[in-house]
Amino acid sequence: MVMLLGGCNLRVLDPQGTVGEQQRDLIILSIIFMLIIVLVVFILLTYFLVKYREREGHRGYDPDIDGSVKLEVVWTVVPIIIVTILSVPTVYTIFNIEEVPEANTEEEEPLVIHATSANWKWIFSYPEEDIETVNYINIPAERPVLFRLTSADSMASFWVPQLGGQRYNMAGMQTELYLQAGEEGTYYGRNANFTGEGFAEMRFDVNAIDETEFNEWVTDVQEEAPQLTQETYDQFMVPGHVEEYTFSGTHLEWVDHALDPEYALEARARQGYEPIHPHASEAPDDVPTWDIDVDTDVTERQESYIEENQESDSHHHHH
């Protein structure tokens, strides 16, 4: 099994950042302990079954043994010891991953990104940079990122397996998660908590890029990308899929879903959306992919920007 673990490039066991690495170490440690326990049980079981199976020349039958205080104390105390041994690194890691990971970049403060889930898409706001992306994020490699998580509607779970464990996004609540990418590359991120019809495809790319490249990208977006308006934003509140989008400005200017859990439902109403019985004849077979109407005078610039962005995106897909 150890060979199997080592042989596969399982995403969780192949982390690319300090948070994920701590979790991997904890997992490996627990696997070792657990393998020992499994082995002891398997060996004892096999041995007893072979030795005491009913057969010619069976020996040692004693039907009246009803226990042994000594032995029972042993197998009460040993598990207690194992649990204690495992508790220490567990608690340590639980506390440690709530701390800011170490930065290896010029900018040492963590980058703050608000990650908001909405059926079935991811909306990312960079409040300090005043930009917003949908269904992808760019982050500087080696700089810690603080994700402030919330949801516009159903409860989702923000997860980038190669960077670290997940955390829930909940409407009317804000949770926080520190992550850090040690290497440049594109990482698979997704919603891990079931949210209905569009759940399986509710994924996003995390592009960890060089710090200077990141700063350039931010400036580009600030200058070139269309301004996010509430009217544009409300379209994202309608359940469905969307492609990747990029905006200047963030939706935090008019709503923080962590403080206003009703916003998405109101926005749907404004958009004229009515939920449909999933078995109604007019219900669509597949989850629709909406084309968001980016209603600004900078639409043209946005189009050229998207092309550019896609180029640079594919450029990062080499990982």
């Binding site: 969780v12 979790q23 997992i27 567990t90 991953i97 464990g165």
Partner: peptide, 8 residues
């Protein structure tokens, strides 16, 4: 701490 990776 490990469960964050196994959960769901």
């Amino acid at each position: 701490a490990a469960d964050y990776q196994y959960h769901n």
